[in-house]
Simulated scan of single mutants.
Amino acid sequence: MVAVGYTLMCEQAGPRQLVDHAVRAEDAGFDLVAISDHYHPWLESQGHSPYAWSVLGAVAHATTRMDLMTMVTCPTRRYHPAVVAQKAATVGLLSGGRFTLGLGAGENLNEHVVGGWPHVQERHEMLEEALQIIRPLLDGETLTYSGDHFSVPEAYLWDRPDTPVPVAVAASGPSSVELAAEYGDALINTEPDPRVVDLFDDAGGAGKPRYGQVAICYGPDERECRRIAHDQFRWSGLGWKVNADLPGPPSFDSATAFVREEDVARAVPCGPDVDAHVAAFKRFVDAGFTHVAVVQIGGNSQPLFLDWARDEFLPRLRDL
């Protein structure tokens, strides 16, 4: 059975709200809570971006059953990979072994706050080096490392779970999929693309979990949901090559100035129709994903969504 996740979208809610949403999600019956890790929101209208790792610590303490994961953290610019390993081990302990570290190559939007944004080839080289640092530290090794981008004179994690924190790697093409299969315990992809799943299997990832993420906008008024989805999520159609390189919310506002409400509504199911939302989730199931996290667009709509998910949405997803 596919595990059903709920996404804590740091770009659309403050830290106390996010913890409350996580508790409500566990009570509703979700299996997993994923959290975004941003320094800036995509659009100014989203209006938030608290520190994801502080929120994770609070969520680990406030919940007891759900798995937790980052979707995703970039371990190459804002954070040194040795520090990411320490953070992951600590959350692993706080959560009682419920945490998975989701990693990716990142976006300029968040990472340029500490300096320049490298070319895509260099970013992938940096991610591979980061994985070469993080994995042995999580496994309990004393690490000395010297690479082209990172150096670790000596590091050891004094507090870590007995079972190492699993690592999931975001990938979308052949080179990143090979990286995910070699260094990761799981794959992350935000598109229901069976080609990526097949590439992951062929590269050595067969049998490992595959994490997906689907955006919806549930609410009783379809017209209002369409408005919210356009206001908050119109950036999502730009594609990874654009999203990874734009530097801030004003750039995303400009880049999406001509995206229409109907363009977003074609990609994101909006309104009260449970069948439409189930169909969007099912595309990931049919593509071979084992875990799918739902993004409910609109920070103020989360309590309403979670009540509806408990009563209508989750029972339908369990039947898939």
Rank of each mutant, 00 (worst) to 15 (best):
V83G: 01
E222R: 14
L127K: 07
G219V: 02
R195F: 05
L109N: 09
L238H: 09
L179R: 15
G14E: 14
R195N: 08
H124M: 14
F289N: 09
P249I: 08
S172R: 13
Q213V: 02
E122P: 04
D67R: 15
W42H: 13
E222K: 12
L137Y: 05
N243Q: 14
G299L: 11
D193E: 09
A28S: 11
L304I: 10
H80K: 06
T290V: 11
Q302L: 12
I133Y: 03
V197E: 03
N110D: 15
A276Y: 00
E178D: 14
G97S: 08
P164K: 12
D273C: 07
M9L: 13
H80P: 02
G29Q: 06
A287Q: 13
A155F: 07
G92Q: 03
F305A: 01
Y39C: 06
R223I: 05
R65Y: 06
V274G: 02
L246G: 10
D20M: 07
V268Q: 00
M71D: 09
C74I: 04
Q12V: 12
A265G: 02
V167I: 15
Q232S: 04
R16G: 05
P164H: 12
R135E: 09
Q132W: 04
D67V: 03
A62R: 15
D198R: 14
M69A: 15
G212L: 06
P250W: 07
F99L: 10
P15L: 06
A293L: 08
M1I: 02
G14N: 13
D27S: 12
Q296P: 00
L56E: 00
E262G: 02
